[in-house]
Write a protein that binds this DNA or RNA. Sequence first.
RNA 1: GCGCCCGUAGCUCAGCGGAUAGAGCGCCGGACUACGAAUCCGUAGGCCACAGGUUCAAAUCCUGUCGGGCGCACCA
Length: 551
Amino acid sequence: MRAITHLKSLLESILSEMGAAWPEKASIEPPKDKKFGDMACNVAMLTAGKLNKKPRDLAEELRAALLAADPSLSKVEVAGPGFLNVTFAPAFWHSTVTQILGEADAYGKQDTGKGRKVQVEYVSANPTGPLHIGHGRGAAVGDSLARLLRATGHEVSTEYYINDAGRQMRLLGMSIWVRLLEVLEKPVTYPEDWYKGGYIIDLAREVIALHGPSIADMDPEKAQDICYEYGMKSILDGIKKDLAEFRVEHQVWFSEKSLVAGGEVESTLAELHEKGLAYDQEGALWMATSRFGDDKDRVLRKSTGELTYFASDIAYHANKYRRGFDTVVDIWGADHHGYVPRMKAAVQAMGRDPEDLKVILVQLVNLLRGGEQIAMSTRAGQFETLADVCAETGVDAARFMFLSRKSDSHLDFDLELVKQRTMDNPVYYVQYAHARICSLFAKAEERGVAMPKPAPELLARLDTPEDLDLLRMLEQYPDTLASAAQTMSPHVVSFYLRELAGLLHRYYTAHPVLAAPDQELMAARMLILAAVAQVVRNGLDLLGVAAPEKM
RNA sequence: GCGCCCGUAGCUCAGCGGAUAGAGCGCCGGACUACGAAUCCGUAGGCCACAGGUUCAAAUCCUGUCGGGCGCACCA
C-alpha cells in the first residue's frame, strides 16, 4: 500500500509539473516477473499522447525525475513499450515489519469507506426448514464481506430478513398439521407443494406433546396457525443456533410480518401509485418496472387480493434506505438472478441510484463425497444440512472452502477433501503457517530467547531473496484488502493467504531461525516471522477462520 | 424463443486491458542425526472453447458460433 501510494504521489507531482494529470486508467502494480522490479507503472504509455511525446521518451524523463526526487528508490528502468519498472531500496521494505508489529491487529485496516453506512443482508432463508449447505456459502460470503467492509472503514450492519408472512408460512403450518394427523392416525388429505422433510414429523410430535392429541379435533385453520407459529419459531431457533455455530452473526432480524402489520407495504404501494408507477389491470395491481429497464411490468397485488413477495420486498428496501444506509448489499442464491432487474427498478422508483443496491449472487454448491455427487434434493440425505456438514468437516475448513472461490462460480464441495488434514486442503496449509511460527516462538521462550524489538539495523540483516519476497508480500496485504472490499470478493483474501503461507513455508525450510548463524540474524528472522504471523492472523480473521497456535 | 452467468494445464480454480498465462492437486524424481515432512525443491503438462473485430498492447473489451448452468408466473 505504502509503495503504491508513495510512488503514485511522486509521479503525480512530476506529471503535474509537466502539465499532465494522472489518468484514471493508469496503474501501479507489482509485475508478474520479479526481474521487472518491485512495481511497474504504465502511466507513460497513457499520457505520452497528451504531451505529444513518445511513450519511451516520456518514460525516460519520468525515470530521471523519480530518481532525483527520492533516494528510497534504488532503481528505475524503462522497459518494453514504456513501462516504468521501479525497485525500492531494501530499507523501504524492512520498515514494513516495524509497521506491522506496531499496528498489530489494525495492520491493513483503512478508511477508504469513509464511514459510509452499508447494510449487508444475507442468508434470509425462509424458516421452513434447517439451513443447508448452499445457505452456508451465502452465510460465509456475507459474514466475511461484512468483516471486509468494516476493516475498510464502512459502518456495517448485518441483517436477516424473515419471510414470516405469506404462502410459504401457511404451507409450513399445513405440512405440520398433516403430519400431526398422520401421527394420530386420523384421515388426511394432502395439500399441494407441502414440506415433506422428516423434521416436519418431529415438529408435529412436539406440537402434540405440547397441546395434547385433542388438537386434531380443533378447527383446522386454528390448529394450523398453532402449528405454523410453533414450527416457525422452532425452525428459526435452529437456524440461529446453526449460524452461531458457524460463527455468523446477524445484528438485526427483520420480520416481514412486522412490515405488513405496520402498514409499510400499503404505504409503499400508495406512494408508487402517487408517482404514477403503479396501475390496475385485470384486477391486479402492477408496477411499471419496465420503465427502469426490467423486461416487463410486475404484479404487486394479485387479483386474489394477496400481496406478492415483490410488494413486501419493495417496502423492505424502502425501509432499509429510510434507516439511512448509503448502500444496501443483498446476497442471493444465483437462481434468483432474474429478480435483480425488478429490484433495481424498485430502487430507482424510490428515487435512488440503482448502484445503491448491490446484489451479490452466490452460485449453488455441488456437494460431493469422494468425487461422488450427493443428492441435494428434497430427500433428506444425512449430510445435507449445514450443521451436519460442519460437524463433519469443522467450521474452519468449511468456511475457508466456501470463501476460496469467486462467489458467482459453481463450487464443488467434496466432504472427503474438506475434512482431510492434508495439503489438498488449503485451510490447513495456511493455518499450519501460523502454528509453525507460534511453535517456533514457544521454543524460543523455552530457551529463554525474548522477542526482539524491531530496529532498522537489525532488520537490515533480512537480505536474502526469500526475505524480500516475504516482505513485499506483507506490504501488499493492505492493497489486497482494499481490492477485496472494493470488488466485494472475499476469495481474494484467501488466495492471498495461500500465497503468503507458501512463501513462509519456503522461507522456513531455507533459513534456520533459532539456529541462525548469529544472534542478530536470529533476532531479525524472528521479527519477520512475527510480522508474517500477524498478517496471517489478520487475514484469517477477515474470513472468520481461526489462527491456531498449535494444530 | 428471450435474458443472465460460465467455457484457462489431466482435475479444482486464480488472473478480467499490459511484458515469456499462474496456483493447488494429480503424475514423475529428489530433501528429515536442523526450529513441526500437515513442509520444501525439481521435471513434465496450454493455439486461455472457436471465428471475426477494437487497441501501441486482448485470456481480459465488442460481435457472432458452438458447448454447459440458471432464470423467464397474478411462485417463492
